[in-house]
Design a protein around this nucleic acid. Structure first.
Lengths: 165, 165
DNA sequence: TATTGTTATACTCTATAACTATA
DNA sequence: TATAGTTATAGAGTATAACAATA
């Protein structure tokens, strides 16, 4: 699904755009490939558990801690009205439940059930991307990659960290 | 939208799963952040041109060469029936057109119009991710990053390249 | 018979706007 | 009045199955 993104940058040097050197184009294309791989594997892992991508992400979030619907919308970067439906479907499968918030009766806390936690763990375990691609790198190479990615991310705006929001 | 993926791996070391060392977890989380950034920027660039992500990807593909509907489905990794709708919407805006294939009258070739090519170029130019994040890296660092990403990707199965299929 | 593209259908995700119950 | 969550609605993407035209 994402495999076309990187490729579309290949002819950049023929345009009147600020020129980009071939090395940079190559690195950007490689990042595009990594992005495509990451996505394919995430969607595949989700569908192995009969979950959509959005459901899998929400379930993973809740496996860490219960959250108000509003907070879930912020973390998923979507409107609160959408969260209602996603939680509905997970709740119908018994993976998630809604609890009242004692401190504010307007708030509903979404929380994983025991079964939901099991699915979340199984989902996480099937994310092979965490193991295989990095398996080809030595410890020093991983340290080096970590440093480069950190510099790459901190060098531009609007980045908080993996947890988002 | 993707920002929850990386975070869900943080507690992996507390599970009975094959143990993953903290360094690897850190690198995987960083990759998750890169993936999230890449996506946000791509969707943002698309919507600046009043395109959805799928429409932007299809348009970018066609800006390189006309393709049969079937090939588009393969490149986008979706069913051919979906491509009909996406091309319909782009065609309604005059960005894409369907042409007969002289060699096989069953085939319809989707191709960008002149206007579509302009939008595709403008879209590509607004993909700031290609410039800013890598701007913080020296030439040697980019070479190093390229090498690490190449080794990472070639070390696992099922990878062709940025262009896919 | 097999293949290409389309249609019909159903589901999910998405944003917007209006509603309710609390605060 | 402001906020949290929901409902209603509409558009887009997705997969499946059935279909017409062509090979």
């Amino acid at each position: 699904m994402m495999s076309s993104i990187g490729g579309s940058l290949e002819r950049m040097s023929t345009q009147k755009t600020p020129r980009i050197d071939p090395l940079t184009v190559e690195v950007v294309d490689l990042i595009g490939t990594v992005v495509a791989r990451y996505h394919e594997e995430y969607e595949e892992a989700a569908s192995e558990h009969a979950l959509t991508g959005a459901q899998a992400r929400l379930l993973s979030l809740l496996s860490l801690e219960p959250l108000p619907m509003r907070r879930l919308a912020q973390k998923l970067k979507c409107e609160p009205s959408n969260v209602t439906g996603i939680v509905d479907r997970l709740e119908a499968r018994g993976l998630v439940e809604r609890r009242p918030d004692p401190a504010d009766r307007r708030v509903k806390l979404a929380a994983v059930t025991v079964e939901g936690l099991g699915v979340a763990r199984s989902l996480r375990d099937s994310l092979r991307f965490a193991r295989e691609p990095l398996a080809g790198l030595s410890r020093e190479e991983r340290v080096s990659l970590r440093g480069l990615l950190l510099r790459m991310l901190s060098g531009s705006a609007g980045v908080g960290g993996p947890g988002g929001s």
